[in-house]
Design a binder for these strands. Sequence first.
DNA 1: ATCTAAATTAAGTGATGCTTAACTATATAG
DNA 2: CTATATAGTTAAGCATCACTTAATTTAGAT
Lengths: 306, 306
Amino acid sequence: MPSALQLNTQQLEYLVAIDETDTWAEAAGRLGVTPSALSQGLAELERRVGLGLFEQRGRGRALTANGHQVLDYAKRITATTADLGLWAESVRQGERGQVRLGLIDVAAVHHFAQPLRRFHRSRPDVELLLTVAPSGALLDDLLAGRLDAAVMVEPPPDSRAGPDAVAERVTTATVLAEDLAVYAPPDTPKAVISGPPSGWGPWVGFPAASHTRQLVARALRQLGADYRVRAESNQPDVLRQLVMLGMGWTVLPVIQAETEPAPLPRARAQPLLSRRLVMARRVGSPPDPATESLLDLIRRSAHIGG
Amino acid sequence: MPSALQLNTQQLEYLVAIDETDTWAEAAGRLGVTPSALSQGLAELERRVGLGLFEQRGRGRALTANGHQVLDYAKRITATTADLGLWAESVRQGERGQVRLGLIDVAAVHHFAQPLRRFHRSRPDVELLLTVAPSGALLDDLLAGRLDAAVMVEPPPDSRAGPDAVAERVTTATVLAEDLAVYAPPDTPKAVISGPPSGWGPWVGFPAASHTRQLVARALRQLGADYRVRAESNQPDVLRQLVMLGMGWTVLPVIQAETEPAPLPRARAQPLLSRRLVMARRVGSPPDPATESLLDLIRRSAHIGG
DNA sequence: ATCTAAATTAAGTGATGCTTAACTATATAG
DNA sequence: CTATATAGTTAAGCATCACTTAATTTAGAT
């Protein structure tokens, strides 16, 4: 590799500047350097290009034909560099860029719809790519680098240990806690509801891999309930329907179970458990201004709303 | 001026290289630097752009979304720089460029037609701009920077002294000397021709400003001739015609007076004087490979032909 | 756990790019 | 034609940059 030609943006700026001013001293002033720096910089450029670019002209110097050719290249390069500089500045300000955010449904629809809308409105040049999926899928996407951040149910303790552990590769910060309650079909006898949990069921719920399903299973079994799931769905609306149809009992986030139309009535006023939604990020991913500011909005909205 | 963004081509090359290889070490090898240099260079680039461009990925590092954006800019800039490098190389080799050469008619038509043709054929990418004009006009163009070099009659001693003198602003090197002879109309009596120069004439010749005219005037007056010019032209062919028509005597370069068709017969075998053709160049103009090689051809042809 | 590959950090060095100050060259004024 | 101002260069000194080698950290593979 014949080490192509090592140039410095600064010297190309010099060349462009002297073409736009009458004297080199003036150009130096405009660039905020001394005439000496300009002179030396241009001499260095000339040396690197290996061609005479200037010649004496009156008491100043003027570009040769070759000098004008190099000037052409210099203009193109400095224009691109300036573009890059402006782009970088706007990204640093968080005014531009890309944010790939994953959310579980309840976060996207109920908890954080407002900050997402607000962010999109206030930073129209930020490309906001939303993925709504169950926590497990979000975690996979995050680990694979397909997401920059994800709002999900707090991951269960990892079976793997050491550096492979999810905890080593992801940082989580709780953004809010929400209650889940037990919901029974409408025609369930009062005696059963107020009776011991061992009499509850049968159940419908999230698929076995679901983080929330695991939390629910643990909570119900601690109460002595026989938690066997007869029907599964990732969609809370579907579970709600199943309950209404008398297919079984379920445990759902209050906010998803009790919204119009047709809110489910709680079996018991007391919530069964509380689950934590966390903001998860990949360790080793550099901070990105746009992402930071979106996450800030989300966190703030959780504090106010929760 | 917020000092836009000072970049170094080298670091952009690094960025492009790591995108084209699997590991940074491999990229470093391809660039002929150590992995350490690459790592530090990219860290510096990241610092200057002010954005995270890389993130941990397995046991290597991968570009972030912002990194890919910067890569895009880097590719454009390095491509332009490579272009510039190739262009400069070909100009250094004299294979490309521009040569603005001035010549007096006899130089273009008789003395140096062959090297000019040869140069044009061997370096088709060099833009050869020829100006054929009297020596005085060539000298003006040269001084004004409209020509890179000129083949002309040796300029007469300058009236101006000091730094304004032409000799201070132009360098000349003799390329050849050529004879000028006296030509009389065909019907001139032998006795007049062999008689004293005071009996010669009337005369036709180059315009008063012509360098050659001044040389001729001096030579004839030294011989005692009455050199008053009845008709003027810059074109030797015209002067030749005037002589044939009996309008008067003239002094011309032998090579222009005695060529077919219709060569003029000399009044006397002995040439009247010898004039020097010089290669003139502006002082302070940097050397240009294409120009140098053309002038070389011209000088060599003069030595062989002369 | 141990080994190996990938990349970073540390320390040292030469090249680069800047500043101030002294200098050369050129034009303009008296 | 000397005097003076202007344009740019050269010299000296200094801080930063970009590399090298060597040691270290990190993460995948055995």
